[in-house]
Design a protein around this nucleic acid. Structure first.
Ligand code: SF4
Ligand code: SF4
Lengths: 150, 150
DNA sequence: ATAAAATAGGATAAAAAGGTCCGAATATAT
DNA sequence: ATATATTCGGACCTTTTTATCCTATTTTAT
């Protein structure tokens, strides 16, 4: 009962983190990313690779290499990341697990649930990486819980 | 990326189904329940047992036995079933997986996500079994997709 | 008492999600 | 050219969720 998969949570946080650091294409290594967002390193590697394939991130191998955002990626929506990692099943499948649904045969919570689900979708569509990254930079929110706040 | 676990989906549907049939404590056998909601029989057995332990359902063994709602269970909220099966983690844990959260260290989507999450909670709290059961009885919604509508 | 009909519950299996390991490939700096 | 630093990708492991199977237990009907 979690709305996003772990992979998706890490993806979002990783992309936001990279957005906070990508003045002049500054590259971040895997280790730095996973430390910044508090995620397991090897697992994070897989996810960053996926994001590279999905053309959200760029990667460079070798010394001085690492990950950074693809051009323009600061302006993409969180929704794009969610789609890339978790797909759209949350927004298309039935909340009650009906194999098929139709407006004449909806599930018992359809009427009340659908508007909320659409709200979530709109929220994800309307929230950009840039916006969240700025919020992190201002210290309004965090990508990882810190015991002692500096 | 599904809001409820399968176990929880089946629970909700099973309880609603029983509510549609509990005029005068009519008992339904496992097989009838799982057929009505389109769920695997043995797995459904486990879930109904859980609901019995949680005092949502009553069960009677032997010939003529089966499952029915506990007294008053028609008036409980969907939220009660969700709590009984999935717990409250969806409503208490961070959407972005932060181990701990505070209002001074929220995750990047906190501000936009929390109100929606609360809406879902309110929706579940304000929706009774009775209400959904009536809706099913009126044919406004279904617990299982039927290819040919009678 | 006995047979039959049901749920209860333990053991197990299969599938999905989450996570790790390590060698191959590649780019860089010297 | 070479050593080094890094990502890439396949194989593997672990945990959780979903599902099945089988036997024990309980209740009812006769
Ligand atoms: S009824 Fe609503 S929630 Fe259920 S399948 Fe159709 S759209 Fe999805
Ligand atoms: S910030 Fe919001 S979503 Fe994140 S942990 Fe706190 S309450 Fe949960």
């Amino acid at each position: 009962m979690h709305i996003f998969s772990k992979a998706c949570e890490y993806s979002i946080k990783a992309v936001i983190f990279l957005a906070t650091r990508t003045e002049s294409d500054q590259r971040m290594r895997l280790r730095e990313v996973s430390k910044a967002i508090g995620s397991p390193e090897a697992f994070t590697a897989k996810i960053l690779q996926q994001l590279v394939r999905q053309r959200v991130l760029k990667s460079v191998k070798g010394p001085g290499g690492g990950f950074c955002l693809q051009e323009d990626a600061r302006n993409i929506a969180l929704y794009r990341i969610v789609l890339a990692i978790d797909g759209d099943s949350f927004f298309t499948d039935c909340a009650m697990g009906l194999k098929k649904c139709s407006e004449t045969q909806p599930c018992p919570i359809h009427k009340k649930f659908r508007p909320i689900r659409d709200e979530i979708k709109e929220m994800l569509i309307n929230t950009t990486i840039l916006e969240t990254a700025k919020s992190v930079q201002k210290g309004e929110c965090v990508l990882k819980f810190f015991k002692h706040r500096e």
